[in-house]
Amino acid sequence: MAVTKTPIEDVAGDFHRPAEHDGVALWWLGQAGFLLRHNDLRLAVDPYLSDSLAEKYRGTPFPHRRIMAAPVAAGALTELDFVFCTHSHTDHMDPGTLPDMARASPRCRFVVPAAERMKAMERGVPPDRLILVAAGDVVVLSGNFSAAVVPAAHEERWQDGEGHDFFLGYKFRAGEKAVYHSGDCVPFDDLGDWLGVDSIDVALLPVNGRDARRKANGIPGNFHLLEAIALCRNAAIPLLLGHHFGMFDFNTIEVEAARSEIRSLGASSYAELIQPMTRYDIR
């Protein structure tokens, strides 16, 4: 596997360009949001490109003001084939983003947890373009591009009365290349079993951590950086790209301290924090 990084100035323009290889290209949208492209198929995962949370929480102890500008407008993404949401928290299933994407890409379909069907429609997803999934499902996106659905534990693994998980992750496989997006997640007992024996080239893991203060205020957490590194080591994943930081001042990390920790662990060759305005090519 080879991964190259290319600085870019225009996310939409770069995303819409013809693919230059048959691997996977990805772009970070901030928080847990990503764009992925394989050949001529394009998708988004957990896009939060609005200020809907700032409007919702204005005047509260956690006002959710952006400290990272959206790198692209949702309506500028006109060639999306799929949008994946890992769960219904607004920074992952955004009513200020999804309707604009639906209008801009009229053939785009939306993959959401079966447990969150009603919320997806409330957030502006057209019912006839919904694909409902549960852990264990596999969504075929094109001939050799698929998404395997795995559970996630956003501090805890929650299920509805029918056993459908509220929090999911996705293993995107394009030929021999695979990218794992965990959704919001912490380590849980059988996560390694769900990742399976098939090789994963890149893990996109949230590294903003968790603590009692945030949890007491209704803000469940994610992997600590060391936990994310350990998962990748144990699952023989050669590259960790840490994300879910730099969006809200109460739910982020000290970036330079985290990079220093990666260096001190001797992990710089296989773990890093994702960079904005950069295309990552996985070949």
Rank of each mutant, 00 (worst) to 15 (best):
A54Y: 10
D160Q: 07
A69G: 13
D189T: 13
G13C: 07
F110A: 07
P7N: 02
F172L: 15
L241C: 12
E272H: 11
T278Q: 12
L191D: 07
Q159H: 14
K56M: 15
M121E: 12
E261H: 14
E55Q: 14
A236M: 09
V3W: 00
A120Q: 00
A257W: 08
Y270A: 09
G143D: 10
A147S: 10
F34P: 02
L205G: 00
W158T: 14
L231W: 02
H16R: 11
G96E: 01
P151N: 08
R129I: 12
A271N: 08
L168W: 03
T97K: 05
D14K: 06
H89P: 00
G161C: 15
G218N: 07
M277S: 11
L98T: 04
D100N: 06
E254G: 13
R37T: 14
I67T: 14
M1V: 12
G163C: 13
F62Q: 11
H164V: 04
N144Y: 10
D201Y: 01
I282Q: 02
D51H: 15
G196A: 01
V133A: 04
D94E: 06
D165N: 15
A135I: 04
L240M: 13
V139H: 06
A257Y: 04
G13M: 07
M121K: 02
D193H: 05
G192I: 02
C85K: 00
W27H: 04
A236I: 09
E55H: 14
W28V: 01
H16V: 08
L49G: 06
K171C: 10
E227N: 08
L226I: 05
L77A: 11
D193S: 14
A2C: 08
D211A: 09
T97C: 07
L43Q: 01
G23N: 05
A267G: 11
P276Y: 03
A258L: 08
V186Y: 00
F82R: 07
N251K: 09
G183R: 00
G23H: 01
I274M: 04
D128C: 12
S105K: 02
L98S: 07
V179L: 15
L80C: 06
I219E: 03
E272N: 06
G23V: 05
N39W: 03
W27L: 03
G124E: 02
P220I: 03
H21F: 09
P63T: 08
V140W: 05
E272L: 08
W27G: 03
M247F: 07
R109F: 06
L141T: 03
G169E: 04
R259T: 07
R214G: 09
D10Q: 10
L36R: 04
P18R: 07
D91R: 02
N39M: 14
P126G: 12
P238G: 12
G169S: 10
Y270K: 03
F245D: 01
L80I: 13
Y48L: 11
A2Y: 07
E162D: 13
D189M: 03
A134R: 12
P47M: 14
Q275I: 11
H87P: 01
V138E: 12
D160L: 05
D190H: 08
P47R: 01
R259M: 14
F110E: 02
A32L: 05
A74E: 06
A228T: 05
F15P: 01
R103I: 05
G242L: 05
P63A: 11
R210D: 00
S264G: 12
Q159R: 15
P47A: 09
Y270Q: 13
